[in-house]
Amino acid sequence: MAVWTGGAALLTQLLLLVLAFALSAVIGIERERQYKSAGLRTHILVGLGAAMFTLVSAYGFTALGMPATDPSRIAAQVVTGIGFVGAGVIFVNRGNVVGLTTAASIWVTAAVGMACGAGMPLLAIAGAALHLIAVGSLPTAERMLRRRSGAAVTVRIDPRSAALPELLERCEASGAKTRIEDLRRSGDGVEVNVHVRGRQAETDRLVASLGSIDGVLSVAAVAARP
Rank of each mutant, 00 (worst) to 15 (best):
F53S: 08
V79C: 03
F53G: 11
A134F: 11
G127R: 06
G95V: 13
I74W: 01
G28L: 10
L132W: 07
F61D: 01
Q13N: 10
A20C: 01
I106P: 00
V26A: 15
L11M: 09
S137W: 15
L11V: 09
V92S: 14
E32I: 08
I82S: 13
P67A: 14
M120E: 12
V135Y: 00
G99C: 07
T5K: 07
V89N: 09
G99K: 02
A58F: 00
V56R: 01
M66Q: 12
A134H: 09
G60L: 02
A128Y: 07
L138Y: 13
A126Y: 06
H131S: 13
L19I: 00
M52P: 08
G117Q: 05
D70S: 09
G95C: 10
L16T: 02
F21P: 04
V46P: 04
G28D: 06
N93V: 10
E30K: 12
L15A: 15
G65D: 03
F21M: 12
F21T: 15
N96P: 03
A51P: 04
L45C: 02
T109D: 01
I82A: 08
G49R: 12
I106Y: 01
F91Y: 14
A68S: 10
S72V: 07
G83H: 14
A129W: 07
A111H: 13
A63Q: 14
A75Q: 14
F53H: 09
V135T: 08
Q77D: 08
W107K: 11
